[in-house]
Amino acid sequence: MEFTEVDNIMVSGLNTSIGSYIGSLARRSLTHDRQSYYFKACGMSGILDMSDKSAGSQIHGIQDHVQEIRQALHTYDIKLSEYPELTKYDEITKAQTIRKQVKYFKKCLSKIQNLKTKDKPIIIEDSYEHVLKVHLFHSYLFNTQKANTISEQDYVIKIWSPLIEIMFRSLNEFPPIICHWGDTSSEVVKEDGKIIHMDLRLIACEADEETDAAVVEFAPMVYKSKHYKDKLRTVLASKVQLNELLKNYAGLDEDKAKIIAIPFMLIVGLVCDIYTIILVASGLYIVDVAYSMTFPCLAQEIKDDGLTYLVNGLKLLKNLCLKIIKFKTV
């Protein structure tokens, strides 16, 4: 008997609802590697991954209908907001000429350290300083010939963890969001019967309760097998957290459910993708990419807004986490 779902979201080109389509596809598919296992597990869990159009993906065979699907789902609206002070830092990186990489980094660093702004948590200044200092003191991290010798922890400790810790500083926000590093799992995920340990959990700490606002997995290089393994772990853990949030929301309907998105990040070397998962209909969840960014590798990339784009991406992640806290207090 053909599998049917109750989402009732129909698009042309499919003879059934989107939920029924991905569920039937999953039940018919065979697994032979991490990628096929990922898409089968997503389909069996009522999850449609809109971010992946590769061969073997859920939407590979219906790519002509992707835009129609997005319109039918009315997916989460991602709003990007910049720090007002960012323009001043951007002006400095653009104003310096690039004759030698090292001299460019030193000039930018010196001028940024002398800049006066209203950035009380010093988030932008320290983010810019960190990136410039990595280039000055750890330039080997950007040597493509040495890529095989750089470990996951090299990227975590020397590049990403300082940036993430800087972004999630808190002066007046309550509850604060703390960065909890090192293969841990939330109690909510454990109670759901899943053993999923995350490299990083961004936790909203309230007086008597902790909520995972986002999870992050790291990898040193692009390995297809590890990518789909990490993505499945983050997707499933995020779905559990989303269900827990929605379960405790009074008067919830499908329209209200769409106002909340659980973010998660996959970081591979110098590349970072921010994803979200939302509930769009009964039993149907959507995973999509919200923002992609790369740690700038060259002076020209910094001059061409690469650093600004990086800070904006991490601010977007923080805003998504803060929205989860606000959602809980409604």
Rank of each mutant, 00 (worst) to 15 (best):
E2L: 03
F3L: 03
F3Q: 00
T4F: 00
N8L: 08
G13I: 07
T16K: 05
T16E: 15
G19E: 11
S20F: 08
T31R: 07
R34C: 07
C42K: 05
L48Q: 01
M50K: 04
D52F: 14
K53Q: 15
A55K: 13
A55D: 12
H60Y: 15
H65F: 06
V66R: 09
E68Q: 08
I69H: 00
Q71T: 05
H74E: 13
I78A: 14
S81H: 10
E82S: 12
E85R: 01
E85G: 02
D90C: 11
R99Y: 11
K100P: 07
Q101S: 14
K103F: 08
Y104C: 11
L109Q: 09
L109A: 08
S110W: 13
D126A: 11
V134F: 03
L141N: 08
N143Y: 00
K146G: 07
T149F: 12
Q153D: 12
I157T: 15
S161T: 14
E165Y: 05
F168C: 00
R169L: 10
N172F: 06
E173T: 09
P176R: 10
G182L: 00
D183K: 13
V188W: 01
V188D: 07
R201E: 14
L202G: 04
A214W: 10
V216A: 02
E217D: 09
F218D: 03
P220Y: 06
K224M: 04
K229Y: 13
D230N: 15
L232P: 02
A237M: 01
V240A: 05
Q241E: 15
L242G: 06
N243S: 15
L245R: 13
Y249P: 06
Y249D: 03
A250W: 12
D253H: 07
D255S: 07
I260T: 09
P263C: 01
L279P: 02
V280C: 06
L284G: 01
Y285E: 01
D288T: 13
F295N: 05
K303F: 11
T308A: 08
G313I: 01
G313P: 07
K318Q: 14
C321V: 09
